[in-house]
Simulated assay, not measured.
Amino acid sequence: MKRFHAHVAVENLETSIDFYSKLFGHPPTKMRDDYAKWMLEDPRINFAISARGHAVGVNHFGFQVDSAEELAELKRLAAAASSGAVLEQGVSACCYSDSEKHWTIDPQGLAWEHFHTMSDAVGFGIDTENQAGACCIPVRGSDRDAPPAKAACCIPADSSATQGACCG
C-alpha cells in the first residue's frame, strides 16, 4: 500500500516540530537534531521536515511503498509521465533510513521521490554533490523540456554552505 510523502525544509526545527505536533495531535515518529518525521495513518502520509540548509518550503513530494514490486510499478508510471526521465538512485541511506529509490521531476520542476524503506539508518545521509547514494533531490536545468540532472543537487555537509549554494 502506498503512503503519500511530503518533505518540507524549515528554518527552525524546534518551532516547526511544536507546530506540526499540535497540528497532527501527536509528536514525531522519528526525531533527530536536523530532522523530524510523522507517520500518520489518517490520512496515510509520511510527513517530514528538516533544517539542513535547503531553501525553506516544499522540498519534494513522493510515495513510500511496502514492496519492491510496488516500487517497480511507480518507476514505470514515473517514466511514462516524464518521457523516461527517471533518476535511478538505487539503495541509499537518506533521512535516517536505508531505502531503494528513484526520482522524477514534474513540469514545474518539483521533485517526486518514490521509495521503499528497508530499515533505519544511523545518519541522515550524504549531503554532498554528485555522490552515488547521496541524500539529495534532483533538479531540472534551465530548459524545462530537459530531463532531471543526472547528478543530484545537494547542500554540502560542511557548515560553510549557503542556502542558495545549489538548490536555491
Rank of each mutant, 00 (worst) to 15 (best):
L87P: 02
R52E: 08
A111F: 03
V56T: 13
A51C: 14
D98G: 06
T117E: 13
F61G: 01
Q64L: 11
L110Y: 09
T104H: 14
R52Y: 02
V65T: 08
A55N: 11
A48F: 00
C95I: 08
S99M: 14
H114C: 14
A78E: 00
R76W: 06
E113K: 04
V56A: 06
E113M: 02
L74H: 08
G57Q: 07
S97Q: 14
A51L: 05
G109E: 01
S82A: 07
S67M: 03
N59S: 13
H116P: 04
L74N: 11
I105G: 01
T104R: 08
T117R: 14
D106R: 07
K101Q: 14
F63T: 10
V86D: 00
G53T: 03
H54F: 14
S92P: 03
C94K: 15
A51E: 11
Q89A: 13
G62V: 04
S92Q: 15
A78I: 00
E113P: 02
E73M: 15
V56F: 05
G84V: 06
K75N: 15
E69L: 12
Q64V: 15
A72G: 08
A68L: 08
A81H: 12
N59W: 09
L71F: 01
I49K: 06
E113C: 04
R52W: 02
L110C: 06
F47N: 01
D66I: 11
R52V: 13
A111I: 01
G90Q: 01
H114S: 14
E70L: 08
R52L: 12
E113H: 02
G53S: 06
A111V: 05
F63Y: 13
Q64T: 13
H102V: 10
F47P: 01
S83E: 08
H114V: 12
A81F: 11
E73K: 15
K75F: 07
D106E: 07
L87F: 10
I49F: 03
W103T: 01
F115R: 08
G57D: 11
G53L: 04
E70I: 03
V58C: 08
S67T: 15
N59P: 06
L87I: 12
Q64H: 10
G109D: 00
G53M: 03
V91M: 13
A68T: 10
T104P: 05
V65D: 01
C94E: 08
S83K: 12
R76E: 15
F61T: 02
C94W: 03
